[in-house]
Amino acid sequence: MTRWGMVIDVGRCIGCQACTVACKVENLSPVDAWYAPVVEYEVGEYPDARMSYLPTLCNHCTDAPCVTACPSGALRRRDDGIVLADEDRCIGSRACMAACPYGALHLFEEASGEVLGDGSRGRPSLLEPYTAAGRIPGTVSKCTYCAHRIDFGTANGLMPGVDPLATPVCVVTCPAECRIFGDLDDPDSRVSRYTAERGPREVLRPDAQTGATTAYVGLS
């Protein structure tokens, strides 16, 4: 059985946000929605202080609280572990948004504007490709682990996590190679081997018991 998952080596992230931008371009996420933001945090005290970065995205949970919370069945977990939002089925209850401990679900609000450089909010051209792409206002969308790339790859004999065209774009884009993707059920996959060698494997909000398939090394 294939179960896609990602491990993020926090120590390797340089905070360049290339994944963040690549994801937005690849998935045309709504103006306010960034499916894969890199969060920053400071650690320590001067002179032993440093800036650390935490790349985030949907954790594609095995026991996904968003799937449980959704009243309309718009969220579902595929057999390969990818959690997808079906905008056609979404009624915009936002129960999934509140239920997700990671902030991985995003409402496409027509009234929203992009946060501009001055902290004010505007309505720039970024909105247009999103509506032009046929996305539905009032619905929720999320990171898909680039399921379209994975599905393209598996249909064409490519290996997700190895072949760039079959791998999530955030993984492919990262110049520091801090994201590793692959089949968690395959002990020889890149992701399994990386975790075995560099572990331990940690997840965000372990108290939430979500069974996240997005995991981290070097978190604590």
Binding site: G15, Q17, V21, W34, V115, L116, G117, D118, G119, L126
Partner: peptide, 30 residues
């Protein structure tokens, strides 16, 4: 980290990221 000097300050996506870190408006002080 996410800008190429000031050449990219006009890019709406990168401006948006900047706003989320408040980097272009801030000074760092101990």
């Amino acid at each position: 980290p996410h800008h190429a000097l000031s050449h990219t300050h006009h890019n709406p996506m990168l401006r948006s990221i900047s706003a989320r870190h408040d980097d272009l408006r801030s000074i760092w002080i101990h």
